[in-house]
């Protein structure tokens, strides 16, 4: 049995159903990300697990115990908020020790645990400072230490990196993942940033309009999106309309090129998805060649993003910058190499 189980979870605000029939099983020590655009219901799910929202229906179990009826302060859950939420009137050490003090832990034990937590986040020297004397990244690390100090069963992270600048965000996300691995704590992380979700998680839940569209490893989510929404939301994806020649064997034509997909297709037309990095300039070792005209060239430094017109359909693709070969210019006719196996058939 999974450590954290969510079954048929529903939440409505008036007539607005924000979470619909949501199911999720999380193993002990697993790091799960809820990924989706604003308003998809990911934070609402997290808040229901924390106890800040009451589900309209459904079950939430932590370590076999039903928690929906428990108050937030009875759930033994640690939470880190986007806005840090450190208590301004308490020092760093007092903030970290707050949960232990509430539990009635002896002072000597609190001091030991606080020192241990500050050491964990690398802020041992700053215990006497007030939150306003810390940078954003430091404040969020203190918030993490505070959430972890009372040894919660589950750690919930509500977009904890969103308020930080890009550089700190990357270093802190590595730090959070490292600490999570070291402590082996079951973690649910809410984010709208796909890079964060893909780089940190054991599994990702892509949410869309209150529904979990797909649950899978970052590799599965990226390479085998289950729905059109997941395909479009995670990464950059070219969508191409193909004419189906043989539905049974999956033979289609894309522009002037005939391609065998070797899988059954439903209708007279099919929507195919292709990641830009799966396309190369020139056929090379690929099994299929498409011809097109360059319509756009964006020089991004190490990478050049190009766009080609394939007889009415637009295809974006990337090529590495090298000083030996000049990139094609707008209007150039080019041959593009792809593998039929990289084409995704998009449903839904």
């Amino acid at each position: 049995m999974s450590f954290l189980t969510i079954e048929n979870l529903e939440k409505s605000f008036g007539a607005n159903r924000v979470v619909k029939d949501f199911d999720l099983s999380v193993e002990k020590g697993e790091f799960i990300s809820l990924l989706g655009p604003s308003g998809c219901g990911k934070t609402t799910v997290l808040r229901m697990v924390a106890g800040f929202e009451t589900p309209s229906s459904g079950i939430i179990r932590i370590d076999g115990q039903e928690v929906v009826r428990l108050k937030p302060n009875q759930r033994n859950i640690g939470m880190v908020f986007q806005a840090y939420a450190l208590f301004p009137n308490l020092t760093v050490a007092q903030n970290v020790g707050f949960g232990l003090k509430v539990k009635g832990t002896p002072k000597s034990e609190i001091d030991t645990r606080v020192a241990e937590m500050l050491d964990l986040i690398g802020l041992s020297d700053l215990g006497g400072r007030y939150p306003f004397q810390l940078s954003g990244g430091q404040q969020q690390r203190v918030a993490l230490a505070r959430a972890l100090a009372p040894r919660p069963q589950v750690l919930l992270l509500d977009e904890p990196l969103s308020a930080l600048d890009a550089k700190i965000r990357v270093s802190l996300r590595n730090e959070i993942r490292e600490i999570q691995r070291r402590l082996g704590i079951t973690t649910i992380f809410v984010t709208h940033d796909q890079e964060e979700a893909l780089s940190m998680s054991d599994r990702v839940v892509v949410m869309h309009e209150g529904i979990a569209d797909q649950v899978g490893t970052p590799f599965e989510i990226y390479n085998a999106p289950a729905t059109r929404f997941v395909a479009n939301f995670v990464g950059t994806l070219n969508t191409l309309e193909a004419r189906v020649l043989d539905p049974a064997s999956g033979r289609v034509t894309l522009g002037q090129t005939e391609i065998a997909l070797n899988r059954p297709l439903p209708g007279p037309t099919a929507t195919l998805g292709l990641r830009p990095e799966m396309v190369s300039l020139g056929r090379g070792t690929h099994d299929t060649a498409l011809s097109g005209t360059i319509t756009e060239v964006d020089f991004l430094g190490s990478v050049i993003r190009l766009r080609a017109d394939l007889g009415g359909q637009s295809l974006a693709f990337d090529t590495f910058n090298t000083n030996r070969i000049a990139p094609p210019k707008v209007g150039d006719r080019v041959e593009l190499g792809i593998d039929a196996g990289d084409l995704l058939v998009i449903e839904g």
Partner: peptide, 19 residues
């Protein structure tokens, strides 16, 4: 002050209303 977030942070750390 951010009353809601501070309250929720305290709740998640086990505090009741009076505290």
């Amino acid at each position: 002050i951010d009353v809601r977030t501070l309250t929720e942070a305290a709740q998640s750390l086990g505090a009741g209303w009076v505290l």
